[in-house]
Design a protein around this nucleic acid. Structure first.
Lengths: 230, 230, 230, 230
DNA sequence: TATGAATGAGTGTTCATTCAT
DNA sequence: TATGAATGAACACTCATTCAT
């Protein structure tokens, strides 16, 4: 999910504005919403390539041609799932951040928001994470832009933290590590075994912010300048 | 890569012993080695489902039926790539750990080994990470067992650290977070932009062990008991 | 066609009842009927294994995938041909038998019905006779059940004859011999050379009932107890 | 097995003469004999089309190329099996007939010989019966000629019977019916259930010669002129 | 609004066979 | 005497998609 070339300066612009940048439909009727949900399930289970339109047809209780009546292609379905998911998680985090002050708490807010959404929409989020590079050209670019915008939110929070605490670390590397940590959960999370989103967010927030142990007292040299462990 | 249900007690048993537990071929001639390498490339680029045997045939400069002369199925190719990759990274980390004392340094050793191997064999490692749940039945079980064994090595190192420093954190959660952090790099790593394996390992080791910032002095309450940030 | 293990007691139950026992489609539209007819021709000419779906596609003037729109597999096509053929010949013989009294005449009725149907639907009947053991599992079992039911009709007629005339012969052996005699015609029958169904039925009926010559007058010992000719 | 167009006048010429008409090999070494036997088994079980050269290779414990070292093609294998089987049964019946006088006993001899051979070499005989029309061109013609010769032996015996007893029936129809009766056994014969060859020959001989019951006394009209049962 | 009919291109896999050794 | 390597053609079947209704 985190972008490869985060050079964009887009920070928080996401298309819920009255004049959408994208010409693509963003409002869905009941049928479409149902199809998208089923499609997310199937893509989640079988992967985008592994899922056939017939699978989707079967899963949504609709004829093959019915699917095409609502959505013009398989690729568009993936695009819409990814875009909708991304837009929602973006809206959500931006709304939450408005009420939170303090860089650390703001980072924790993003983590919590991410994990809550992830666990509440595991299937869609897996599709987002796992089918990251499937979409090509314009469609792919649009999702990539959303991803970049989301990424830059975290970068901004990290920069704020660095500034306010006079710290020195790579925002890029830290952000990507944090996203990795969080997005990876789709490979292992088991609702019956693992903690809920809030607890998970607590653990991952602690881990990300302070690590699993205190740094050794004897080391006087600033930690962040090490270039390798030996 | 990290397993969902790490209940197995397998720790370090991996089949490089003279009498291999698995009946499956583990030695390859020149042709087979070449095919496996090309297949890893193609799987990496297009995904397992998205790659066709014809793609593999083209990439390896061999006829479609020629491929089947060497490997009985597409699934077996994926299996062999995954198994060989996992076996190698396992062997490697076990060998390195023998020369290292101190729980923290041992964890850093695993991180360094993982990232060095990951970057040196990016394609195979992406296939390992991304096509995690494709293999079914016996083949899938065998790879899953390797994964579990690898996972348990890290768990062991974390338990050692906890014990020696009287710490209290979830080994499972920490291990899975670390693997997520590391495995996610296949989605963003750019050789020309990002640091090399050693530096990356340094950064991720620091992050994992000590976080990005000092814990606040005022907090007297043990960190690890928080259940969320609010 | 005659079954190997006629232990079933099914006699005349065949699914033309309003509520069919089998869940499998038995009504076909025009296209399906045409495809089935062409398929029977091709199976007849090349054998089931020897006929490819492309052959069937060509013969029915329809694209390969079009075929699959109507029938889910090659096996199902064979099954439907066999089942339909068997059902029809069964219905037909049962209807005819209702109007006939006297064991000998009833046997002659079955022979006539069999041969008339055989010659009128040579291709389908060859497919029935020649591809006897191709179908596996449920599909094969269903056709085998029909075959057994048909076989048991003849057995019943023979038992009636034995009882009414105080004869002693093996119904099983006689029935299987008669079926062999009749079914074998697909290997030799030439419309321009050989007699029509009625004449053939007359000849085979005579042969089956009375043989090609009078038994020798000198032999007083009951014929049927011989255990070989020497 | 019985020929469609028995116009040939060949009666008993079969190629064991010092100067074989056919240029094709008829003597086999141990390896070849073994391969032919295994091939007959596999053809019997899976059918000619359904059996692959790899199946034959596996069954004969020899590499695929090994097979081609001994036999030039799959078709040739079928040809050799069919030819050898036919030649043997022909030789056998001719030898036996030399010692038997009386038309009826000679017919019974042919029946016994046929069934004994059939049951002793069920697999090869099924291949003969079932894969009747697979062979094309020269190879097919050669086997067809053997078949015709064998058929004409029976025709000769029937003509003798007709002449000596002043009977009137169709030799062709009777011969083909008898062959059908006998050859069909591959579809139903079960060693544990059914009688042995001698008993079977007795039953089928009786059936063929005298039918299952006495002709009705009241009928004065010569039996053989009926043209159907109604 | 919704679907059955239909298809060209493609899927993984197997085929009988050849050839160098 | 015997085989591993290699292949072009074919296999049954599925794909995403279109179109008339």
């Amino acid at each position: 999910m985190a972008p490869s070339s985060p050079t964009s300066t887009v920070v928080a612009g996401h298309d819920q504005s009255p004049a959408p940048a994208s010409a693509i439909q963003t409002r869905f009727d009941q049928q479409q919403t149902k199809i998208l949900a089923r499609a997310a399930e199937v893509f989640c289970e079988k992967g985008y390539e592994g899922a056939s339109m017939r699978d989707l047809s079967r899963a949504s209780g609709m004829s093959l041609s019915g699917l095409y009546h609502y959505f013009e292609s398989k690729e568009k379905l993936l695009y819409l799932i990814q875009k909708h998911t991304f837009s929602t998680i973006m809206e959500s985090v931006l709304a939450r951040l408005e009420g939170v002050r303090g860089p650390e708490e703001r980072i924790r807010t993003l983590i919590l928001n991410h994990l809550e959404y992830f666990l509440a929409h595991q299937q869609a989020m897996k599709v987002l994470s796992h089918e990251d590079d499937v979409l090509q050209n314009a469609l792919g670019a649009e999702v990539a832009a959303l991803k970049r915008a989301y990424y830059r939110i975290l970068i901004g929070l990290l920069d704020d933290l660095k500034q306010s605490r006079k710290l020195d670390f790579s925002s890029r590397l830290s952000a990507l590590s944090l996203f990795g940590m969080m997005n990876w959960i789709y490979t292992w999370y088991q609702p019956r075994v693992d903690a809920d989103a809030a607890q998970l967010a607590g653990h991952m927030g602690d881990l990300f912010l302070h690590g699993i142990c205190e740094p050794p007292r004897t080391r006087k040299i600033p930690r962040r300048q090490s270039t390798g462990s030996k």
